[in-house]
């Protein structure tokens, strides 16, 4: 178990307006994640997996409690500060890849670097390196519409990893993939996790994903019901 804590969730509760009332998506969550973890949130639909990932990814903020990511309290960040946090430290992989449709593979991956003002030559070097990680170095000029599902998700991984973030958030990354492609993607992510020491956080109910995870946080009705660390129950 690695010890550098980069994510610390303290008593986080998230409520959404639901008509005239409120819906509690997360209730008093306490979790910590260290650098280089390969962990995932598992649970049925509506258990709060994605909400928790969104808070960690600074796309959303908790109603109560503190979510400290890279030392920053998400609740207190302005739009600009949270954008900077995502830009520098967090990569995202989505269920439906969310590739920018008018951009080529190269441009999609390059996008994250454009926001960080890298020079053109540095961008090219890094993009090609990221495409090599995912085995797509031969198709930089293809448009997303010409890619298969597996290829699309590999581009999404390259886009998320090209800026070498400390945290990578993957929301149901294999939900739209067949078993073979899901395994390829997961092996790729595991390899990147080991080589680059990036913390991977998944939300999933795919058992194939769970096989690869070193730590599984089980959520139900917005509460942590079990926190498994590789053959060992760490907390409940």
């Amino acid at each position: 178990m690695k010890t550098d804590i980069i994510i610390s969730i303290e008593n986080v509760t998230k409520k959404f307006k639901d008509g005239d009332g409120e819906f509690t998506a997360l209730s008093n969550i306490n979790l910590e994640f260290s650098k280089g973890e390969f962990a995932g949130f598992v649970g049925p639909s509506g258990s709060g997996k994605t909400t928790l990932l969104n808070i960690i990814g600074s796309l959303d903020s908790p109603t109560e409690g503190n979510a400290l990511v890279m030392g920053k309290n998400i609740a207190g960040l302005s739009h600009k500060e949270s954008a900077l946090l995502r830009n520098k430290h967090i990569g995202f992989i989505f269920q439906v890849y969310n590739l920018l449709p008018v951009y080529t593979v190269f441009e999609n991956v390059e996008f994250a670097l454009l926001l960080q003002n890298y020079s053109a030559s540095e961008r090219k070097k890094r993009v090609m390196e990221a495409l090599e990680w995912v085995g797509l170095q031969n198709m930089p000029d293809k448009k997303p519409s010409k890619l298969s599902g597996g290829e699309g998700q590999r581009v999404a991984i390259a886009r998320a990893m090209v800026k070498r973030p400390e945290i990578l958030i993957a929301d149901e990354p294999t939900a739209n993939l067949d078993a073979k492609n899901a395994h390829i993607i997961l092996q790729m992510m595991k390899k990147l996790n080991e080589e680059l020491d990036t913390t991977f956080l998944f939300s999933t109910h795919d058992e194939k994903v769970m096989e690869y995870l070193d730590r599984i946080v089980h959520l139900e009705d917005g509460k942590v019901v079990r926190d498994e660390v590789k053959n060992k129950v760490a907390a409940s």
Binding site: G57, L59, H79, K80, A83, L84, R86, N87, K88, F92, F94, N98, L100, F111, A112, L115, Q116, R159
Partner: peptide
């Protein structure tokens, strides 16, 4: 949404 997730501010 993807632009924002990738680090662009809303503005």
């Amino acid at each position: 949404g993807t632009y924002i997730a990738l680090g662009m501010t809303r503005h």
